[in-house]
Amino acid sequence: MPANDRSLPHRLTSREFMQELPFRLFISPLAQRLEVHWHEFFELGFVTMGEGKHVINGHSLSARKGMLFLLTPADFHEMIPAPGTTLVHYNLIFSDKLLDKELYRLLFAQYRKHLVCQLSEEDYGAIAAEFERIHREQEQIAALEAGRIVKGAIERLLIELMRRSGLPEGAGPLEQASDQHEIGATIAFLRLHFREPLTLEAAAREAGLSPNYFSTRFRQYTGVTYQHFLQNLRLQFAGSLLQTSTLPITEICFASGFRTLPHFERAFKQRYGVPPSKYRS
């Protein structure tokens, strides 16, 4: 995308980058800004050289050697090398087929602005070795054992990232009662699919519960109704897009999961106290 055209954040597709495989690993040197974009797939990144900024959902973070991060299909980001430097990182993209249900729930059932950690020099080598192993195995992916090795390496990296990122502020351990476990898994699903037209009935099916029971337990679990929770996810995403892109407000409305502009503008003003146009300025 041209450097002077930032109005339309680009959407990277699985068809473009993964094709037959459920993952691909790239080594990406960036000498200039990687413009704001988002993906259909997950991206697990690890900075190996250089420094700069990494802006995730509107939050600017320092990017330097040892930064480990996970981006989901609900995130958008850009990377900006410091002047005169090249920012080099492993870029591991993969589909949700490589995430088992329990790991998926642990990663996403509780809200985090982002999953990012900064490794010490002492810990850098072990994480780098996992990426190097995936890079080697990628060449032999036709072999069954290679696929298993890659899946295991991705899971180890995600668990390390989750541990080092810690629990979200104010959060405690997830409850283990069976229905709370299913609702937690559904919340993880919503955090990644909130832009889609998700009815309460569809979410209840995802949890394997009846709509009425799901609605009651969801409110007990989160403190808000299902529709309020879903709308807040969409509004958070819209607010970040307003602050980090020049995407037209109508496009932001639909990209965030709203179906009509008037509903979006009413909900946004009720949440933030100003209409979207004022929030951007």
Rank of each mutant, 00 (worst) to 15 (best):
L25F: 03
G239M: 02
L44N: 06
L241Q: 11
F26W: 01
I154D: 03
A74P: 07
L8S: 12
Y124C: 03
P276Y: 10
G166L: 01
A177K: 06
P9W: 08
R280E: 10
G84I: 05
T48W: 01
Y111C: 02
V88M: 04
I80W: 00
A203T: 08
F237K: 13
F94V: 06
K101L: 14
V116A: 09
P276W: 08
M1G: 05
Y111G: 10
Q118K: 04
A63R: 00
N232T: 15
L61R: 12
H59R: 14
L71I: 04
H114D: 08
E196A: 13
D123F: 02
K269Q: 15
Y104F: 15
L44T: 05
E43M: 06
P83V: 14
K97A: 15
T216W: 05
L261Q: 14
F42H: 11
S60P: 00
T246P: 00
C117I: 06
I249L: 14
V150F: 06
E16R: 06
I149N: 13
E20G: 02
R156I: 10
M79V: 09
S256T: 10
P262D: 15
G52I: 07
F94N: 06
A153N: 13
R234T: 02
L30T: 03
G273N: 10
D5T: 01
E251G: 09
I187P: 01
H114F: 10
A74V: 09
Y213F: 10
I252A: 11
G50W: 02
S256I: 07
E139S: 11
L233T: 06
A129N: 13
F218A: 08
A188D: 05
I149D: 15
S62W: 01
R266A: 13
E145V: 07
G273C: 08
P73N: 12
C117S: 15
L167W: 03
L235S: 12
A203D: 04
K151G: 07
G273D: 12
G125R: 14
M79H: 03
G152I: 05
H193F: 05
Q140P: 00
F131C: 08
S178H: 09
E102T: 11
E265G: 01
F23Q: 02
S28G: 01
G166P: 00
L12I: 11
Q270R: 15
A238Q: 04
E137Q: 14
P22L: 09
L144Q: 13
L242E: 08
E182L: 11
L30I: 01
P22A: 13
I252C: 07
